[in-house]
Nucleic acid binder design. Structure first.
Lengths: 362, 362
DNA sequence: AATTCCTGTCAAATCGGTTTGACAAATGGA
DNA sequence: TCCATTTGTCAAACCGATTTGACAGGAATT
């Protein structure tokens, strides 16, 4: 029964010499150890530098690793270490996809820069859809496929809880889910709107129009509050006739602001809560024969790329999306590292960018 | 020396009852097997359905798995199976970041839809930078961290070779690297330009201006070729005075096309190779007092979101970025599955979208 | 009743690393 | 010279799954 032994490939040099470089055959630590003439654990230690290894041995192992183009197998390392060194980026319910949303695109640029720096992988999870079954990111948490989860936008509380229950930290971007242990990073919508309206008031405008967004969402509500607070602080009366709520796109804003401008006592300035809407306002001004900023001042919010190239360039409140993203990423890294004391909500301040669409009262 | 045995946790029920549900303690297959009263391999088989397992046992195991919210550990499975079920998306040298580029954003929407469907994870690799050391995606290949790589844009041939050498297939989007075994998916730039110019010729225009891009890149060269071919086929002479090359942005195009329109024998139509440039042309027309399409026809290329909302809406050649992305993804999946016969280059056709900026010759 | 064939289950090996602890050799101190 | 350290290496255990093959016990066949 000579068939018994000969399990270990050590036994005999096999029929063929070892096939190296064949497609699909990465070299393992075992190969490195063999080439360096040391045991497998020694090779591991030599490369990772944890234990007492003689300089000469370490050098031999390093050289062997280099020659074999050795790269540790990611799955093996993850299994042993219990960390995946990667995070999931989850497009929220309000997004059509991570790549299809202008706002999140910018936010994620900030996220990416932070994770790249510390060599953490970013996994794009499939976008959330309303559904009764667990979304993929929950499974990813339970499978320990990721060390942390960053949700961008709207998400159901129970799924966040499920992920946290699996021991995987979650940070929520641009949205706050109360009563769940997940810290959030949001824009200071109220502050931004305040700055915009205040800027117009400071220029001497007394009839300041408002093109807002639906108040059922935090964004719409908060910007309206900021606008109202600015008027109050400037000693101005709010006039419901000057306030409009429209969907967040240029066409809708074009139509509604046209009506505002047709008023006998029309506004001399308009604050639109998004640049897209501001673009619509500008078009409406043109259609009404009003010059900007001489006859009408306009302020937007967001600072989209296009804002700098309109004619005249748009004064706007810049939402620092990259900062939001980077902040969220850093908080998540902290939680992964074991921090327990993350603030429930971190608010990122805006920046007023004064360009050419605002001027003194005519 | 009673300390000897008692390694296996089976031995004694320890001081505390098993801590389940503690944060960070996912349940393993061992837990499931124990709860179901079967051995570990039996549990595995029961869940994966490969072998002969009695219905009753299978049911018991399934139930146990459900109760424990068992999800197989991703790293363990990957290690054993030798596949990671994920692919890397690599932003090419010409991109500032995967999220910062309008073009690739759209392409990646298509990529994402395909991979989501088959439950393959998408890893965003750090953007390439010119450097002598191996970019991250090569290491990811060598570490078998991904099963395949999708490069979007410009990439150095040697790094592609390195990844292929590690046995990981690569597909290149929007660029072709000759002499490397990586299939490419590109847009039919020449065909699109041909369609645009031909459309103008068919409308009766004989002096058709061209606002192109630098010919050192394939895009610039191919669109110019398409334009030239269309004129030739329509029996028109090319006039160098009507052809301009500008950076791909609205301002540059605005200036250069202004010069074209100032010519005594000005063009009655202009084809700009990108929508951004076409926007500049439209502005130049406005500045020169020319009405569109009555005095000047304009065609762009790309079909950016904005194109549909200009005044009048822009006639353009739609680059089907989502199709490009989906095609590349499918080819990559094929290669991962073992296909050997992928076409070196797959060209995706464009679509002429006729809107309001083109009309018959004045 | 003896033999063959299924069925259902499990022990053991494996994927490729990391880490603990044992041990031999070299060094230092008395 | 002898004992106590220190230093360098390796054997073995482990992470959490999958898969092969051995082995009982029951059913079917002769």
């Amino acid at each position: 029964m000579a068939r018994v032994a000969a399990r270990k490939s050590e036994a005999a040099p096999a029929r063929h010499p070892r096939v190296r470089g064949r497609a699909g055959s990465a070299s393992s630590l075992r190969d490195v150890a063999r080439l360096a003439g040391v045991s497998l654990p020694t090779a591991s230690q030599a490369l990772n530098g944890r234990a007492r290894i003689s300089t000469i041995t370490r050098k031999r192992v390093r050289e062997a690793a280099r020659r074999l183009r050795y790269t540790p197998n990611a799955a093996a390392r993850r299994l042993k270490l219990g960390r995946s060194n990667s995070v999931a980026i989850v497009p929220g319910l309000n997004m059509t996809g991570i790549f299809s949303d202008l706002f999140y695109r910018a936010v994620l640029a900030g996220v990416g820069s932070v994770f790249e720096e510390v060599d953490v992988r970013m996994l794009i999870a499939p976008p959330l859809r309303p559904s009764s079954s667990a979304p993929p990111f929950v499974e990813m948490a339970q499978a320990r496929e990721v060390d942390g989860i960053l949700v961008a936008g709207v998400v159901e509380a129970r799924w966040v809880r499920a992920a946290l229950g699996a021991g995987v930290p979650v940070v929520i971007l641009d949205n706050f889910v109360p009563g769940v242990g997940a810290p959030a990073v949001v824009n200071d919508n109220a502050g931004g709107a305040y700055a915009a309206a205040r800027h117009l008031a400071d220029l001497g405008h007394t009839r300041i129009g408002f093109v807002g967004a639906a108040v059922d969402y935090p964004f719409g509500r908060e910007t309206q509050e900021g606008y109202a607070a600015a008027l109050r602080d400037a000693g101005l009366e709010r006039d419901p006739a000057l306030e409009a709520v429209t969907p967040v796109d240029a066409d809708a804003a074009f139509r509604r602001s046209g009506e505002l401008l047709a008023l006998a006592d029309r506004p001399s300035a308009i604050f639109a809560v998004t640049d897209k809407q501001a673009l619509g306002v500008m078009r409406a001004a043109g259609a009404a024969g009003l010059r900007i900023p001489d006859d009408l001042s306009v302020v937007g919010m967001d600072d989209i790329e296009l804002a700098a190239t309109t004619d005249p360039p748009l004064t706007t409140v810049r939402i620092r999306k990259d900062v939001m993203g980077a902040t969220a990423a850093r908080i998540l890294l902290g939680l992964i590292a074991g921090d327990r004391a993350a603030r429930p909500v971190t608010t990122v301040a805006n920046e007023l960018i004064i360009r050419g669409t605002t001027g003194g009262r005519p």
